Simulated assay, not measured.
Amino acid sequence: MLNSIGRHTQRYAGVLTGIIGLLGLALNTCPQLLKPQRRRIFWLLFKRQLFNSGLRAASINTMIAVLLGVFVMSKAYSVIPNNAQFIDYYAQFFNIMVNREIGPLISGIILIARSASAVTAEMGQMQLYRQFDALSAVNMSPALVFLLPVFFAFPLSLLLMFFYFNLICIFTSYAVIELYHAGGITLMSFIRALLEQVTVTEVVVSITKALVGGCLIGLASLYFGYNVRDRFTDVSRAISNSNTFQLFAFFVLNVGLSYLVYL
């Protein structure tokens, strides 16, 4: 058992080292964006990646947010007294359950399942058929074409997913209140109560989770895809290993930040 733990620890240490190397490569490639031609290529690929990873996930994100809003609201009615202070209690309950923990985790899982898997598969296929050599032959940097769009698009996509996941949950929760709560609560008073629970620290933590988590997910998907070798089955293995690592690392990041800041 100790031998197995040691192997897994060594493997994850190697993955983290590779991700840090990709981070350094991305930062070193950024000066290429100062050249107009390269910047135009990057901008086209960045918009494509942002659309695929962030905007196209809006439908599944919305459906899960609606279900979660109804679930959280029903649980709130079961544990929070139905009195004049209900709105304040619920705002605190919503902020702790959705804004701090569940929203970031579900958004990260959606990004991993939809977009990171696709990037790993795309990178794996290109590595399998040696298409990176073709890019180098025409003096095109693979880091500019693949690394930088993912490096910038994934954190921004996750931040957008955080925002509209919470927004949909808020409106869904208010709809449930309108159906079942006989208190004449207005939408503005509901939103005001929620905003009073949000502190600057929580905004900073949410942005940090999105930026660091999105960067980690994107670089990990590129790392595992690029390490595909000569067998076709390596692609599916890379997707499986990538998803496992991303879920574990993103969960540790979220729980670790929450523990350091809120406890």
Rank of each mutant, 00 (worst) to 15 (best):
L135K: 03
P104M: 01
A91C: 07
L147P: 13
F94V: 09
L144K: 00
N166L: 04
M161I: 12
R100A: 12
A134K: 09
L156R: 01
I168F: 05
Q127L: 00
V150Q: 03
R114M: 07
Q85G: 11
S141Q: 11
F163V: 14
S117K: 05
M161A: 11
S136M: 10
I168T: 14
Y89C: 02
E101R: 10
N139V: 02
A84D: 15
S136R: 12
F93G: 02
F94R: 03
L111Q: 07
N99V: 13
Q125I: 10
Y164H: 15
A134D: 09
A113K: 13
D88R: 05
Y89F: 14
T120V: 07
A116N: 05
V138C: 09
I170K: 09
I109K: 13
A153L: 05
F151T: 08
F94E: 13
P155Q: 11
P104R: 06
A91I: 03
F86S: 02
L167G: 06
R114A: 11
I96E: 13
F152Q: 03
V138K: 01
A118Q: 08
P104N: 08
F132M: 08
Q125A: 05
S136K: 10
D88M: 08
L111P: 00
D133E: 15
L148F: 10
V138R: 08
P142W: 00
V145D: 12
F154A: 06
N95I: 02
G108A: 01
F165L: 06
L111I: 11
P149T: 03
P142S: 06
Q92W: 03
L148P: 05
L111V: 08
E101Y: 06
I87H: 04
A118T: 06
S117W: 00
A143L: 13
L144P: 05
V145C: 04
P155L: 13
F171W: 05
I102M: 14
L111A: 10
F94I: 11
S115K: 08
Q131R: 10
V119M: 09
P149C: 00
M123P: 05
S136C: 09
F162D: 10
A113V: 15
A118M: 04
L167F: 13
L135M: 14
L147I: 04
P142I: 11
M123R: 03
V150R: 04
I96F: 07
V145H: 02
N95V: 07
P155E: 10
F163M: 13
Y89M: 11
Y90I: 08
V150Y: 01
T120N: 03
G108L: 00
L156Y: 04
A153W: 01
F93E: 07
S115P: 09
V138S: 08
F152C: 12
Y129K: 07
I170L: 15
M97W: 10
R100K: 13
F154N: 01
Y129P: 01
A137C: 15
S141V: 01
S107F: 09
F171R: 05
L160D: 09
D133L: 05
L128N: 03
S157P: 00
P155I: 06
N139Q: 12
E101S: 12
G124S: 09
P142Y: 02
S115G: 08
N95A: 15
D133Q: 05
L105R: 08
A137I: 11
M126A: 10
F86L: 12
L148A: 10
I106Q: 00
L128A: 08
P155W: 08
I170T: 15
F162H: 15
E122K: 07
N139T: 09
